[in-house]
Design a protein around this nucleic acid. Sequence first.
DNA 1: GCCGTTTTCGGCCCGACTGTTTTCAGTCG
Length: 591
Amino acid sequence: MVRSNDEVAALLAEYADLISITGGEAYRARVYEKAARAIGGHHADVATLDLKGLQEIPGVGRSIAEKVTEYFRSGSVQAVEELRAKIPAGVRRLTAVPTLGPKKAHVLYEQLGISSVDELADAVHAERLRDLKGFGPRTEERILHGIELLRSAGDRVLLDVATELAEDLVARLSEVTGCLRCAYAGSLRRVRETIGDIDVLAAARTSAPLMRAFTGLPYVTEVVAHGTTKTSVRTDRGLAVDLRVVPPDSWGAALQYFTGSKAHNIRIRELAVRQGLKLSEYGLFDVESGARIVSETEEEVYARLGLPWIPPTLREDRGEIEAGTAGDLPDLVQESDLRGDLHTHTDLTDGLAPLESMVAAAAERGYAYYAVTDHAPDLSMQRMTDERMLAQREQVRKLDGERGGRGRRAGMRLLHGTELNIGPDGEVDWPPEFLAGFDLCVASVHSHFGQSRAEMTRRIVRACENPYVNVIGHPTARVIGRRPGIDADLDEVFAACARTGTALEINAHPNRLDLRDEDILRARRHGVRFAVDSDAHSVLHLAHIRYGVGTAQRGWLTKDDVINTWPEARLRRFLRKGRTERTRRGTGVPP
DNA sequence: GCCGTTTTCGGCCCGACTGTTTTCAGTCG
C-alpha cells in the first residue's frame, strides 16, 4: 500500500540522514527532512505533479522538485546514489541505536569500518572502540545497552497501554507534596496511534520530591537520566518515561512545548522569531529586553503569537497553523458528541458479554442509540445461522427503548445489525431479502488479504455499491504491529463511499485504529461520512471509543462528518441509503 | 536548500543531559 508520496518521502528522509552522516551542512539535512514530511503528508499524488506544482508544496523548492521529477523519470536520483555509494545502508541503521547519532555512526564507519549493528556489537566486545576520540568506557556501555533495547524490539506500544500507564503516573505524582499541576503531554496527548515514550509534566517550586517519587515508582526498572528539571526512566514493560518539572508560572509554555509535535513547535517558534520573540518551555520572551511576556497557559502563548488555541490532535504541522491564522480551524468532534456506537458484538459470536450486559453498559454511557452487529455466517468459526440471528433480533426488539441510561429521559434505541464479510468478489453473506431485515449492516474484509490491488479495490467498491451495506468496517484491515493494511486503491474506495452513501468506519480498537489519520484526511476530501465505532467485544471495550474520537480529530473531522453524532432520525435516513430508489432502478443489487 | 510585513542574502528552534571534555560536542525530544 505504498503511495508514491511515501516512496518519495522515504527517499528524501534517507538523503537527509546520509547528509548528516557524511558531515554535510545541518541545515541542508533539515530541509530534506522537512520536505520529506511535507510530501508524505501532501494530499495530491506527487507523481502527477510537474515542477511548478511540486514547488507549491511548502518546503519544496526548485532543487528538491527537480530531484522528485528525476526520481519519477529515471527511477533514481543521482545525488542520492552518490551518497549511497559512499555510505553502506548498515551505517544508517547504526543511528537507530539509542545514543548513537549520525556523527558517531560516521566515526565508527570511517575509523573502524563498522557498517552494521552486529559488527558494532562485536567491535565493542573486542574493545576496539577504546582508542577512538570521544568514545570512553561509559559510551561503550551505553552502546551495548542501546543494541539490547533495539534487539528486544517492541519499541512502541499501543495507545491504550500508554494511556493507562500515563493516567496512573499522573495520579500518583499529583499526590506528591508540592506538586501543583501534573499532566501527560507528548504524542500521547496528541493521540498518536502508537507511543514511543511518555512525557509527563509537573509544576512545582522544587523538583526533588517529585523526582524522588518518580524514580521510586514500583514499575520503574532503570533510571536513564536524572536531573533537576528532567528525569528519564524505563519501566518493566520497556517503555521510556520522561518527567519534566517546571516552575508553576511556566506551565502553559511547558505544556505547549512538550506536547509537540516537533514539526508543529518549529513552525510556532519561527512565528515567534519573526515577531522578535523567543519561545521556550519557560515562556514567550522578548528577545531584546529578555522580559517574559506570557507563560501561564497555552491559550496565552498561542494568542500572543496571533493564533487561537490549537487542539493537540491537530499539532502535526499539517496546515493547522495556516488554518488558525485564517480563523479556519475545524470545530473538532468530541467524545461527548457521540450519541451511539454502531459496531459492537455479544457472546452470540465472539464477544465476551451477553446482549443484556452490553446494552446496559451502553445505556450507562448515556447513548441515545446502540447497534448490535454480531458476525455473519461466512466467518464460519462464529457458527452464525439465520435462526440465531433472528432470535437475537427478537431479543433486541424486546430490550429496545427499555434502558433510560444516565441522565436520559427517553429510552436508548437499539438497532439490530450485523458485521458482514466482504467476500473475494465483493459479495456478502446474505441475499438482499435477508439483509433488508437489518437496521444497519457493517461490512468488513476478513479474508483473502493477499489479493491484487485491482481485485481488492473492486471487491470493496462492490460492497459499497450493495444498497444494504452502510458502513465499511476497519477499511484497511490492518492490525498495528502485526498485519499491514490490504493493498487497495483507497482513493477509489473513498470515491465509491461518497457516491453510494456508505460510511467509512474509524475502528477505535487500539490495535486497529482503522482508518488511520492520514487516510481520514484524504477520505474527507472526497466528502465521505464516517462512523466512529468501538467494535467492542466486551463491556470494557466500549470505552475504547475515545481512541477513535482522537483518531477522528487527527483527521480534522467535525461532528457533522460523523454519522453517530447525528440525531436518530437523521441517522436512520442515512441508513436507508436510498435503497428503494436504487432497488427500483435495478442497480447496485448484488447477484 | 528554502524562504521573505526587516530580508533575493543571511538567516535557519531551543534547552537538558551525558560523557569526555579543561570549555564542549553529540544526542535527544
